[in-house]
Each structure stands twice: as structure tokens, then as C-alpha cells.
Amino acid sequence: MDRARLSAIAHRWHPVAAPVSDDALRRLVGRLAPPAGAGRTRTALDLGCGSGAWLLALLGAHPAFDGVGVDTSAPALDAARDRAAMAGLVGRAVFVEADAATWEGGPADVVLCIGAAHAFGGTAGALAAVRRHLRPGGRVLFGDGFWEAGPSEAALAGLQAEPGELPDLPGLLAEVGRAGFEPGYGHVSTLAEWDEYEWCWTGALTEWALTEAPHGEREQALDAARTHRRQWLEGYRGELGFLTVVLHDTRA
């Protein structure tokens, strides 16, 4: 079963592709006020936008913005376009199927990159890509994982990760500083947010497998849901953290 399609189905119930509640999402995008100055439309860019939940929330909160979302997943982008239509944002949101790591669009006043660092080879690569697309003095909404505890061998196995692949929270913020950004408002995902996200991921995929899946994909989807549930519950639950943070450009 195609991985991009599987992921799009798994995120049906929780289109915010991160362990972040709707309330926390609204608070975070609310901190991305338009830069000072009048007379022009601001641009937001979402690198690794998935189904567009973050970008569309930003556009809904800040009418001065138009936005572009970039992702390689055609199923996720189809969902993003549907969500934009339902929100009345078709004229303000454009979704592009491309590799965010090599995409060469114009500069943006706000750049979002949440849960997509793997597409850039890690945190440092993601922050470097963000900077390439950011207008001087702009703001960033960045989200990435870190070790809140451990990591235990079970957590590493569950994520199929190496011991030094993720930092702790101070280490993640140190990486942000080395890239020339200053952390502003941030949100550390709670265990309840993690549980909601993971139960939605596995639950949406399980329900699809049992009620909608074509013959031949039912067992594949169920196996993916079972594997993910086991890796989470027996592996990284309570050890893997997630930070979403507004960053200010200190090199403006």
C-alpha cells in the first residue's frame, strides 16, 4: 500500500500532523502577527505542509496573508485543497506537489516547517531551508521532536532511531540559536496531546481498513495500524517529546 496514501488516511481524524491540539494550534498561529508595514499582502510558506492544517489556520487567523504549501504527497495535497475550499480560502492558498528540500519559490514573511525535519536531513537542514525562504526580519513556526526522557532501547526501536538522532529540549533550542533564530512563544506537547494524536492515527486507519478498504489492502492497513500502535505504546510513549515554537530572525 502506498505510504503517502496510508499516511493521508491515518490523518483523517487529526489533520494537524503533529501531537498538537486545535487550541494550541490557534495560539501558535495567533503569535505570527503580520510584520510591521502596510500596503502589501504578506506571504506564508509551509514546507512539508501535509494536508494544510497549519497553513489554513494561519490564513484564517490573519487575513493579510496569502500562502503556499509544498509537499510530495499527492493524497495529502488533495485533502489540503478540499479543506481550503471548505474554509473559503481557495484564492489565498496554493498547494504545490514538490520536494520541499529543493523547491525554489520566492521569499516569505512567515515560514512554517512542522514535523518535517526528516525531509531536510534533520533539524539543522530544516532550519537552513527555512532561512533560505525567509525575508529578513520574518517569523518562523517550527516544530520538531526531542527526547523528553531516555531514550530507552524500546523507544529507539519503536522509532527505528539511533541514540544521538534527536536532542533533548535544551539541545533542540541550542540548534535553533546556532541557526540565527531566537525562540519566542512555544508549546511542548502534553502526554494527552500525544495520546490523542496516536489514537487518531491508528484509529482512522483501522476504521478505514474495516469499512472502506478495497480487497487486498485491508490487511496491509490493519498491519500498519497494529505496528504503529505497538511501536508507540511499547516504545516511545512518554519519552518522545515535540516542541512547536515561534522563532524570530536575529540576522535581519
Rank of each mutant, 00 (worst) to 15 (best):
Y236V: 04
G50K: 04
A80H: 02
A64G: 11
T102S: 14
A101D: 08
A204T: 08
P75V: 10
E153S: 14
A192R: 13
G121M: 06
W103K: 04
L233W: 09
S73H: 02
G50F: 01
E212G: 12
S73W: 01
G125V: 04
E97P: 00
F181I: 00
D109R: 10
W194Q: 13
G171Q: 04
E217I: 02
D144K: 02
A84E: 03
W103D: 03
P183S: 13
G216V: 09
R26E: 15
P167Y: 04
P35W: 08
P136M: 13
W201R: 15
A74T: 11
G52K: 02
A225T: 12
C200A: 15
P136D: 10
L156Q: 11
A117N: 05
D71G: 00
L127G: 12
A192G: 14
V110Y: 01
G30S: 09
A117W: 00
Q231V: 07
G69W: 01
P35S: 13
T43F: 04
G91Y: 03
D78R: 09
D46W: 02
A124H: 07
F146D: 13
T244F: 03
A36E: 15
G69N: 04
G177L: 06
L25R: 06
L166S: 09
R229C: 08
R83W: 01
A53G: 05
V110H: 01
I9P: 08
T227N: 05
A221V: 07
D109W: 04
L32N: 12
E217R: 09
E104N: 09
W103R: 08
A100W: 00
A129Y: 01
G184Q: 13
G184C: 13
A44V: 08
D168S: 09
L55P: 07
D249Q: 14
L222T: 01
L25E: 12
T72L: 03
P170W: 06
A155L: 09
L59M: 03
P107G: 02
T102V: 03
A213I: 09
D168G: 12
F181K: 14
P63Q: 09
G238I: 03
A17R: 10
T190G: 11
E239D: 13
L127Y: 07
A61S: 10
G137N: 12
D78F: 00
G52T: 10
W201T: 14
L32R: 07
L233S: 11
A100M: 07
Y236H: 15
C49V: 04
L173V: 13
W232F: 15
S51D: 10
V245C: 13
R229S: 14
H215W: 07
D23E: 15
A213M: 11
R92E: 06
A117I: 01
